[in-house]
Design a protein around this nucleic acid. Sequence first.
DNA 1: CCCCTAGTTTGGTCCTACCATTAGCTGACA
DNA 2: TGTCAGCTAATGGTAGGACCAAACTAGGGG
Lengths: 255, 255
Amino acid sequence: MIHESLFTPAQVGRAGEDVALQIEAAILNEKIIPGEGLPSERELQVQFQTGRGVIREAMRALKQKGLIEIRKGAKGGAYVKQIDVANVSESLALFLKQQHVGLADIAEFRESIDRTITLLAIARADAAEKQQLVAEAEKLRECLEQPEPDMWTLGEIDRELNIRLAKMTGNPIFEWIMQALQLGFSSQDYALYEDPDYRQKTVENWAETARHIATNEPLRALSSIGAHYAMLQRCVEEAGSSRKASAQSETKQQS
Amino acid sequence: MIHESLFTPAQVGRAGEDVALQIEAAILNEKIIPGEGLPSERELQVQFQTGRGVIREAMRALKQKGLIEIRKGAKGGAYVKQIDVANVSESLALFLKQQHVGLADIAEFRESIDRTITLLAIARADAAEKQQLVAEAEKLRECLEQPEPDMWTLGEIDRELNIRLAKMTGNPIFEWIMQALQLGFSSQDYALYEDPDYRQKTVENWAETARHIATNEPLRALSSIGAHYAMLQRCVEEAGSSRKASAQSETKQQS
DNA sequence: CCCCTAGTTTGGTCCTACCATTAGCTGACA
DNA sequence: TGTCAGCTAATGGTAGGACCAAACTAGGGG
């Protein structure tokens, strides 16, 4: 539990900020460990010598940052938690939405990340992991050949394939970046999956890429990835010109 | 100004979340344009049929997300603003801090991004931009040769060089990612700059890389970058083994 | 021994009052 | 007439109290 003198009374004017900063510092310096919790709001109110509203606003800010989780009822209160990568993703997605980022720029960035990840995965992952990747890519193909291909399941497996490949680099940052990208642009991805031509080619491309990774052929793997993104670009251009104008304007409005 | 019926009364239980979500949706759908503002807290209190504390907590959350900025006094209130990339950076930095990410992983990621950016910059930037890059790298070298090299200025120019190079890709995402990385790991970067050997070699490496970019020699440029990160890795290893233990433990504690 | 109810803790909401800051206006003075 | 000090109103920031709802705890009854 928390020692009594961990926090000092808040200053006037920016009391809310002050409280939030003090608690945040305590968390980041590991004065408070993830898992167990802060005093109750009424107790903090006394420690900081401030009103309860100030404490509540600080808590809301910390919760928004992903630093704490709040539970109601007895034994409730604020509990320090591990920040989830979803917080970063949400922040990133919000930013990209408001900046009107085009799909082309996003695709280019994803392609560059994919290439790097693929090379690292080939160099570092062991044979078993590579075989698992091939197996999952095959599962994706089987899933498509079902009489009623479930769009959501397809997207989910595609997502898992990307994450699995990123994990194989051995560097967690790539996995996180990939998760952030997936979460941030899931809407666009799903929209593309509506196109049956894109579906078919993507699935086959995944199987091909996985095979080349498993057989340690980096150049062929990169070639597959390049083909995939070239195909994606064609689909985007087609969608932008031929599809109904409402979808286009909506994309413009939201991205 | 805001239409009267934009918001609907908040539900009980999670009124704060509800209010925040409604306003966030209004902002993202561009029902409210960046630059001009929401009604006052007391007005929103009426529109949402809720207490003022709820409104304030929602505002705090939106402010934390970077969606609004709050001004005091008459004509004050919440004004919608363009999300700054610094918000994403802060979120990312917080996450990486709590995950105990090692410098080696970060460096590897940065190296991969640097390579991609360099290739794109060589392919797309015009000669004038490349010449400016060379000039700025020269400025960095001059700055180092001063009798009293200002550490902060050096770091600042280094940062600007990275941003400038990222801009030259023509894809804003690379610029943002670079900014996020810079802001997120500035502390580690500055610590490395304390080493005079690292300083010297980094500055020379920048000049070399810029020259190769200006003369459109991608392979040589990549080679320079590779050399830089190999050198960085040596410095990190040395610092980890020979430097005083307190710095090491502090790094462990904070990263 | 198990289940169910009452009590206690704690976050969630509402309200009211007051303070601090700021923009805009008003009026006196040069 | 122009300018600037001072006043006023609008608005966010803080304080404190009261009550509700949810959730854990313990004690009593089956």
